[in-house]
């Protein structure tokens, strides 16, 4: 493990990048998931079709392919647009971090779409009728009845989606994001100890997934405190 000594700070900053990508992709993932679920539950045929295509496409394609397509696709499009104004420009790309963040958010968002849809459908009709009987408006029913009931239903699969997100950040190193994986590659170049360096990366990811698993367990406990008995 001596070889790692000089690299701790690089690993630390790499982990910070993992965290940054995780948080932004989490926000986007929730957004995509909610929009997808809303579209699937809406009465609009076209919206249903688009959301259906979205889930089929992103659940049926390998993650690495989506990342490569988004990164190189956006680069070639941007370069072509830029060359229309200035023919001297050779190459412009979307920073790998953002291309990657959007790519993994789109992928996991397609899974989240199904989760949110199921959770909204899982809200008991009786609860909504009770809210109506109490004279709550649609908005009040949504905020006080639907949301509290659905997040409890969505939480266990949502925890898995967060784990997928954190693990998918490793794939972004393929298009050149300088996160922990990338740090390991550099470190191997100078130390020649691939096993040690990649094990450190594995431990970092294991720590992240442990934290996520524990927080989801805590939230489940918090959600169940007022549930109906042992749920």
């Amino acid at each position: 493990m001596d070889a790692v000594t000089g690299w701790w700070d690089d690993y630390f900053w790499g982990s910070m990048i993992v965290l940054q990508v995780f948080f932004f992709s989490l926000l986007l993932m929730v957004l995509f998931g909610l929009i997808g679920a809303a579209a699937k539950l809406s009465d609009n045929r076209l919206a249903q079709k688009i959301a259906g295509a979205y889930t089929v496409i992103f659940r049926g394609t390998p993650e690495i392919l989506v990342i490569l397509l988004l990164y190189f696709g956006s680069a070639i499009t941007l370069t072509a647009i830029a060359q229309m104004f200035d023919p001297d420009i050779k190459f412009i790309d979307v920073p790998p971090m953002w291309a990657g963040t959007i790519a993994i958010a789109l992928i996991v968002g397609s899974y989240a779409t199904e989760t949110f849809r199921g959770a909204f459908l899982g809200v008991k009709p009786g609860s909504i009728e009770a809210a109506r009987a109490l004279g709550m408006s649609n908005l009040q029913t949504f905020i006080y009845i639907r949301i509290p009931e659905m997040w409890r239903l969505a939480l266990p699969p949502f925890g898995n989606h967060m784990l997928s997100l954190i693990k998918d950040t490793a794939l972004i190193s393929i298009i050149g994001l300088n996160e922990t994986f990338f740090v390991a590659k550099q470190a191997i170049g100078t130390t020649g100890e691939p096993f040690t360096m990649y094990i450190v990366v594995g431990c970092i990811y294991l720590a992240f997934s442990t934290i996520i698993t524990l927080s989801v367990m805590g939230m489940e406990k918090f959600g169940a405190r007022t549930g109906e008995g042992a749920r």
């Binding site: 794939l171 990649y198 594995g202 990811y205």
Partner: peptide, 16 residues
């Protein structure tokens, strides 16, 4: 289950 499959592949192929 807690680590990315890419890391596992690299540990086995480049690491071992």
């Amino acid at each position: 289950r807690g680590t990315p499959i890419l890391v596992q592949i690299f540990i086995i192929y480049y690491g071992l």
